[in-house]
């Protein structure tokens, strides 16, 4: 068919565009030569250099901690925000509230970063590790809220009603029924928040202080000086981690899907 050949071409070109730069970056991290355009043979020397670069390693450790802490707080706040949006149809300032959830998703980072910094200065908080966490929590919670909200919108309310009907009080119902069932979305939200936090350069640059240099800030300052294979190496490791994470998630969802299909076959046969 003509249109399917067109579609295949479009997708091939599109994905080539998306992936070739990343693949090149990964390949050149194993280049023995320091020059980008010259292939000097396979080598792991840049990984060794990277490993012994104390500044880079410190930044990585700080980034990981910022990511875990801000993603966790952001997930709790984002889940609460999603519940408020879906379950509370009317409360004072609901318009403002939903506005505050959606705006950070598109707000240029320079504005968010600058405004957040000015707040910290205005109230006299020393900038550093915790100010980055507050800033990251604030914008990642909105992403979590969107992810959890879309799950809650398809949530069958009668499950909660059934629990209430069977004598389970509301708060307990949330922890025994609602939370376990929306948990995959909460986890997805956490992972998204964590990645966004790892990724962020601009907001972190504004809100950080002495001793809290995150990895993107470190990479950025080196990138400005030019392309180095050492940066390629650390980028490759980050890409590798993310890819492994995504592959594990997709395999586990695939398995859950297979299990579901198998269950339905069992159910259809109606036998043990």
């Amino acid at each position: 068919m003509k249109s399917s050949r067109f579609d295949a071409t479009v997708l091939t070109l599109g994905f080539a565009f998306l992936y070739i730069p990343i693949i090149i970056l990964v390949i050149y991290s194993f280049n023995a030569s320091k020059l980008v355009t010259v292939w000097g043979g396979f080598s792991l020397q840049w990984y060794r250099t990277m490993w012994s670069n104390q500044g880079l390693m410190d930044a990585a450790w700080i980034t990981a901690r910022v990511g875990v802490i801000s993603a966790t707080i952001g997930t709790v706040l984002g889940t609460l925000a999603a519940l408020s949006l879906v379950r509370f149809t009317r409360f004072p300032g609901r318009m403002l509230f939903s506005g505050m959830i959606y705006a950070p998703l598109v707000m240029p980072e320079v504005i968010t970063g600058l405004s957040m910094l000015l707040l910290f200065v205005a109230v006299g908080i020393d900038r550093g590790f915790w100010t980055v966490i507050i800033a990251h929590t604030t914008f990642t919670m909105c992403y979590v809220a969107i992810v959890v909200q879309s799950r809650l919108l398809t949530f069958d309310r009668s499950l909660e009603e059934a629990a209430l009907d069977l004598g389970c009080p509301p708060v307990k119902t949330f922890f025994k029924i609602t939370l376990p069932l929306i948990f995959p979305a909460v986890i997805a939200g956490w992972m998204l928040a964590f990645t966004l936090s790892l990724d962020d350069l601009v907001i972190a640059s504004f809100t950080t202080g002495p001793g809290a240099t995150t990895l993107p800030i470190k990479i950025y300052s080196q990138v400005r000086l030019g392309v180095t294979p050492e940066i390629n190496a650390i980028c490759t490791i980050l890409i590798g981690l993310v890819t492994i994470g995504v592959i594990i998630t997709s395999i586990s969802t695939k398995q859950a899907e297979m299990r579901r299909i198998r269950d339905e076959h069992v159910a259809a046969r109606g036998t043990t």
Binding site: L80, L96, I101
Partner: peptide, 21 residues
């Protein structure tokens, strides 16, 4: 509490900074 906690957080760390800016 479900509404108030994220609401106050966003007021404090998203809206207030805009007023300051």
């Amino acid at each position: 509490l479900v509404v108030a906690v994220p609401y106050l957080w966003l007021l404090l760390f998203f809206v207030a900074p805009f007023l300051i800016i």
